[in-house]
Design a protein around this nucleic acid. Sequence first.
RNA 1: GGAAAGGUGCCGGAGUGGUUGAACGGGCUCGCCUGGAAAGCGAGUGUACUGCGAAAGUGGUACCGAGGGUUCGAAUCCCUCCUUUUCCGCCA
Length: 428
Amino acid sequence: MLDIKLIRENPGLVKTGLTNKNDNHRIDELLELDKKRRELITLGDELKNQKNKVSEEIPKLKKAGTDTQPLFEEMRQLGEKIKKNDDELRVIEEEFEKILLFTPNLPHESVPVGKSAEDNLEVRRWIPEGLNIETKKEVLDHIQLGKNNKILDFDRGTKITGSGFPLYTGRGATLERALISFMLDFHIRNHGYTEVMTPFIVNKDSMRGTGQLPKMADDMYFIERDGLYLIPTAEVPITNIYRNETLEEETLPVKFVGYSPCFRREAGSYGRDSKGFLRVHQFNKVEMVKFVKPENSYDELESLVANAEAILKALNVPYRILLLCTGDLSFSAAKCYDIETWSPAEHKWLEASSCSNFESFQARRANIKYKAGGKKGEFVHTLNGSGLATSRLMVSLLENNQQPDGSIVIPEALRPYTGFDVIEPNRS
RNA sequence: GGAAAGGUGCCGGAGUGGUUGAACGGGCUCGCCUGGAAAGCGAGUGUACUGCGAAAGUGGUACCGAGGGUUCGAAUCCCUCCUUUUCCGCCA
């Protein structure tokens, strides 16, 4: 949520930022409602003040034996006026609130202005020594590899649930579990994160806190009976750990890492990239979340990206880093780097991580503050990044490590976790 | 799922319709005292919105789990929901 004071004081700046984010903003409408809202608040407060004053007098008058009946009548009328005013205010505030909740975050000044993904900026790439991704090689894709090695069974996943719900079997399931454990341990031991294991189903307040609601409601699985949502990312429960709380300054930065399955309906994208792992409704992800002081948040974003990169280097997976342009930024983000891993079979880059700084956008929605000594509380800045999503990572991992004989070599770093160093066809 | 009892400020804990933003105690902050400290004494100690002000500040409104209602007036009465504890049932 944007600060209404900022919008009031710099409407031009806000509008430009939103336009760059491809948002059809309603700032003028919002400001008008804000004005009306404040008028009604002032009027209502005056009426209530009058009411309180008289209420205070009544017991005194009663004691003095004065007849208070005429006052009661007057007060009843005043009460009706107040009610009418409050009703009017409620309508205005609901609309005001709604527009504000649908208004995305502003892009940071360091974000390149652009319309779409094509305007994203590649800031660096890392290719393992000896690997050449330019020349197209004849390789099997992850679906074929999964089948041949009996480690991925998309057909049966579809039977069990529906398309986009993968089934891992044998060494495939073990590899998936190993990846998750490896990544968690890596961040805990090398990057100073504290592990959390959260609920995977959350309430509306949590979804609103991180910005999924109200705008992205259609993209989420909703349990009608309980009014609860399946999480699309661990960002939601982890960030909401501190919803409605004030942290002590010296505890910052707080760095959490947690595993969760992620559930996404992917409404409106049927048929696009639908093959195998490229776009699924359920996948696994290790997520990093930070709560930091505002003045540090952009340094923290850089280190967040570096933390995710370290995993890929350790696994010897080729990747590149994109700085998203204003038009491709997500709703809540002020600045975001995507990490894409290389798929030789698709001969293209696949998004495996998104690392974002939300500044105070989520903190304001979720009411997360920090306090220094006796000073007034301020909103923290929140960040999060995948470190990483296993599905797309698995594609790169399998395809890049396949051998001419059809087997797949497990990267050195993962072997303590898998307990085997190769996956071969004809064994389960 | 059934039954009962609770949810008050940083913490403990009063308060069952009328100067209660909230007694009392603890904590914390500042001051006095001291060579220093403890003890003691004095003062202060929430958040949000909104008006005025350049600011310090100051006026108002709201907030005693959340949301409604009754009343001239609600922390106090009524309704709904959430949550905690205990007991019963069920169960990994």
